[in-house]
Amino acid sequence: MSSTNEFQRLLALSDYDLDYASLETQFADLANLAAKVAGSQVSLVNLIDNYTQWSVAAAGLSTLQMDRQDAVCNYTIMGVEALEVKDLSQDERFQDKFYVKGDPNLRYYWGTPLTNPDGYNLGALCIMDTDQKELSPEKIELIQLIGKEIVNRLEILKSMKQMQEDIKGLKNDKKKVAHDIRGPLAGIVGLAEIIQHQGNQGNLEDVLEFILLIQKSGKSLLELADQIMKDEDQYLKGLHSNLFNLQSLKEKLQDLYGAQARQKNIQLRVVATNDYSEIKFPKTKLLQIIGNIISNALKFTQENGIVKVNLQLEQIANNFNLIIEVEDNGVGISSEKIKEIISGEASSSEGTQGESGFGFGLNLVKYLIDGLKGSLQIESKVGEFTRFTVKIPVV
């Protein structure tokens, strides 16, 4: 994958504006279905950003997150075809990974890219096992269809977010948007029927219960689209779920990035001021911006270090700015590197524990901040600290 395509891939993923910690209920049935079809112990629905592989749904394992460089799916998203590794312990890329050398001692891997309609790989659907396996062409076709279903659901989530963000236009465009949503939703129901038909032919009776769940889910979503067309007010009640206040943003950041900090034995302290605690503001792109900065801080902070995140609202006349300050006591950034980041031309560096960088995390941050008409300041002293201060108009 070229560097240009990788940056565009990250932009495409950021357009979905996903909260990775809240997606399990959306995709758990599909992870279970993939494992049933393959007859495998483990199946994962993985989304991959600049730093992290987020397993947003899993069968056979708890949902987890890991450094992107450690993930087999990182190789899957670099291609257009499925990737199969017969024995991870015999592949020099993976034989020393923790999930191969230790519990759960995985050996077999098969993964297919989750490719969106614009051709960008957002992540991968994979099945894994402690024993080597042979997947029939019929089972491979079924698993790839499940992967397409995952992308359909991501498209639905994206459409709904766009609808929420453009509330003023919704009054005039609600019928068109609902019609657009009905397309992929109808595809879900049709896909389930195809899989059920093929499942019957292949005597995969144990997957039919999951198929029926998908059909029921798809039909429920079709009914929701119909309701949007009939009753705008009912839909708008859900708009509050797309808002943060300082406390809920603090809790979400702790939930998403606390595990990364613990894995590296770093203290992650997130503090929100009590001022304007009742004020709510849109979630749009905030997790992508703050998450990338926190991940970068964790990458360049030594073990036993500290990453501090301060959140506050600043009132100017009748408007509010969200101020985000992320400070670490890590390796620091040179003045030349700061200039590269501010200009959007930063390149990758290796982390304190040898983590590979993919070069675009802070470039993406700058791009998203500019898109929200915000500002970015960076202060640093090499060997002592780095402080990112982001200011974004939110209300």
Rank of each mutant, 00 (worst) to 15 (best):
A259P: 03
S248G: 14
V45A: 03
E155H: 08
L236Q: 15
E379H: 07
L23R: 06
S55H: 01
Q263D: 15
L106Y: 02
L204K: 00
Y75F: 09
S136W: 00
D15F: 03
Q377E: 14
P282D: 09
L33W: 10
F98R: 09
T112H: 10
L18W: 08
G187P: 02
T352E: 13
D49Y: 09
L185H: 01
K252Q: 14
E138H: 06
Y120A: 03
F27I: 14
L47M: 05
L364V: 07
E325R: 10
E350V: 15
S159E: 10
N363V: 10
F94N: 02
T352D: 01
T115P: 12
K285N: 13
V395M: 08
K216A: 15
E6N: 09
I195Y: 00
Q227Y: 03
I266P: 02
L135Q: 05
I194N: 11
S343M: 10
G190C: 09
P137A: 12
I324Y: 05
E303W: 03
G169D: 05
F244A: 05
E251P: 03
G258Q: 01
G39N: 11
L122W: 04
K216R: 15
F358K: 06
T389P: 07
D255S: 14
N292Y: 04
N121M: 06
S334D: 10
A346F: 11
I150K: 12
I316K: 13
G359Q: 11
